[in-house]
């Protein structure tokens, strides 16, 4: 589904990624761990199509060159990034945003747009699964939401948009234990053989709930070790010192 070959990225002449390779197949869950500044979020941003990076190397998504697709086309084709810091957008109602987003994606896929009634039904169902109070949805997008509420809102968007490849950028940070479990349940219930996850995290604790098939250690812009779920447990004990 996703094939990254020799990816290099620079910002203001500073090298952040230095020849990163990664293959993700449908049905897989990959976790990327690594110390601060190792390039984890840069990778997520590049995959989402954020401007400002000078990129070399190849990223293919479903066989297509990702660099040919705009941010919105990537989203329409099923790439979803749960932001590390979800942005507050004053004056934009959360429900209106969710509906515009869903219908943009549906339209691009050649599906019929959802009318208000069916949309509200869908949102009600998905938000109750995540324990999100409906009142939040009539508020301005992320404005005045707590850290945990913002993260849950990201997972709600994921469940509504139904992406093929979901990238979670430190979705666990700032979550209390209950919220962490709810978010993990949200991911687990969405996971199936056709979609894939790339989970960026600092801590093993999210991986206690969402079992990854692979754990990669990212250091200085490269994947320096790949292992199975046990690698996370090991890292929790030893830290990243061996990889830096």
């Amino acid at each position: 589904m996703l094939n990254i070959k020799n990816l290099e990225a620079k910002v203001d002449n500073k090298h952040i990624l230095n020849g990163l390779n990664l293959d993700i197949k449908p049905g897989e869950v990959h976790a990327i761990m690594g110390p601060n500044g190792s390039g984890k979020s840069t990778l997520a941003n590049i995959l989402s199509g954020k401007n400002g990076y000078e990129i070399k190397g190849e990223i293919k998504y479903d066989g297509q060159n990702l660099s040919e697709l705009s941010t919105e086309e990537r989203a329409q084709k099923g790439i979803f990034l749960a932001f590390q810091y979800p942005l507050e957008i004053p004056g934009v109602n959360t429900n209106v945003f969710l509906r515009t987003s869903l219908n943009s994606v549906r339209k691009a896929r050649g599906e019929k747009e959802l009318d208000t009634l069916n949309f509200l039904k869908l949102v009600k169902e998905k938000s109750s699964e995540l324990g999100i109070n409906e009142k939040f949805l009539s508020r301005q997008l992320n404005v005045g939401f707590s850290g945990g509420e913002k993260k849950k809102n990201e997972i709600l968007q994921m469940k509504i948009l139904q992406p093929k490849l979901a990238i979670l950028d430190e979705t666990d940070s700032g979550l209390d234990i209950d919220a962490l479990r709810i978010v993990a349940d949200g991911v687990n219930s969405y996971k199936n053989k056709d979609n894939a996850f790339l989970i960026i995290t600092h801590y093993q604790r999210l991986l206690d709930y969402i079992k990854p098939n692979f754990i990669h250690v990212l250091s200085k812009g490269k994947i320096v070790k790949t292992g199975n779920a046990e690698l996370g447990v090991e890292l929790e004990k030893t830290g990243y010192a061996n990889f830096i």
Partner: peptide
Amino acid sequence: LNLIHYLKSRGIPEKEAYQMLINGFLSE
């Protein structure tokens, strides 16, 4: 532009993303 990127990353076309932000600005 970070807000535009956020909206676009949810599949919303650029022009519509701008309109949403402008509307949001005036909505008050």
